[in-house]
């Protein structure tokens, strides 16, 4: 099943949530449609909180939210969303001693697949989809980090959900595992809505049709990755020395320094990237680079 092209899978407005005195989300508004959308932001920006709200794990203090045409504030609406949702938490936990098959089977039961034969066929299907059919009988504690992450993704795919929410799915993976994961996610995004949070701008460029930049609980940008990069046009330049006045300044592999901010009049402007656009929105103190490659 896919969501009709005209109907957003998720529509949020004025979402607010507090943890005690901390304002985690402050009037967040965005819309999600088919394809992969990246949620980009620094640590503590509110990404995980926002994903948990969309996944119906948390209820916002205020604001409006429609997910897959249902209102998650009501019991029937929440159930309707959960039946069409796949969720990969930031730190997926596993019952010790479970095999990959047993874990996905357990999640399939939670997703109301009670018929044993149909359930086991579904477990095999999702394990194959993430390339783990040969590891089905292995204990999860014996699997690598990348494989565990794929087991968790397989569990999220049970029931062929229309909306997939992935909280930093590639964190901690080596480059090869990351590439493998990207392939799977890109394929999944061809016929459903995928919302993934990440710190990595290259992941957004590689995977996402749209991007949302979240910083200190507010949406700072929503649009296509190319549009985010374009926002930095004329504000990225290179030179032979560090620029103390720039928002961000770092030495690149070529030996030149790349700067983001307000350029001097005679600056040698460079083609902006998504990362440059992103740096313009987030707290410069949190991202000020050293002599990175």
């Amino acid at each position: 099943m896919t969501i009709a092209a005209t109907m957003p899978a998720v529509r949020a407005s004025e979402l607010t949530l507090r943890y005690g005195r901390t304002l985690a989300l402050d009037g967040v508004a965005f819309t999600l449609r088919d394809g992969v959308t990246g949620l980009l932001g620094p640590n503590g920006a509110g990404k995980t909180t926002l994903l948990r709200i969309v996944a119906t794990a948390l209820a916002p203090d205020s604001g409006q939210l429609t997910v897959l045409g249902a209102d998650p504030r009501t019991g029937p609406g929440r159930l309707a969303v959960r039946r069409r949702l796949g969720y990969l938490p930031q730190d997926p936990g596993f019952h010790p001693g479970f095999t990959a098959f047993e874990f996905v089977d357990y999640v399939a039961i939670l997703k109301e697949l009670t018929d044993r034969r149909a359930r086991h066929q579904e477990v095999r299907r999702v394990l194959t989809a993430v390339g783990l059919e040969r590891e089905a009988g292995k204990r999860i504690r014996a699997l690598s980090g990348g494989m565990r992450q794929r087991v968790a993704l397989a569990a999220a795919l049970v029931g062929d959900p229309d909306l997939l929410i992935l909280d930093e799915p590639t964190v901690g993976l080596d480059p090869e595992q990351r590439m493998r994961f990207r392939e799977v996610i890109a394929e999944l995004g061809e016929r459903r809505t995928v919302l993934l949070s990440t710190h990595q701008t290259e992941e957004v460029m590689a995977l996402c049709q749209r991007v949302i930049v979240l910083d200190r609980g507010t949406v700072r940008f929503e649009g296509q990755p190319a549009e985010l990069a374009d926002l930095a046009a004329g504000r990225v330049w290179t030179s032979g020395a560090r620029e103390p006045g720039a928002l961000a300044s770092w030495r690149t592999g070529s030996g030149l320094y790349r700067h983001v901010g307000d350029p001097p009049p005679d600056a040698d402007l460079a083609t902006p990237t998504v990362e440059d656009g992103y740096l313009l929105f987030v707290d410069p103190g949190a991202t000020q680079g050293g002599e990175g490659a």
């Binding site: 948990r52 119906t56 794990a57 159930l79 959960r82 969720y87 936990g93 999640v107 939670l110 569990a155």
Partner: peptide, 18 residues
């Protein structure tokens, strides 16, 4: 205490029933 708590909460099966 439950490693799959977050997954359980967003599953269609009622958390209260579990």
């Amino acid at each position: 205490v439950d490693p799959t708590y977050e997954i359980s909460v967003v599953a269609p099966m009622h958390t209260f029933r579990l």
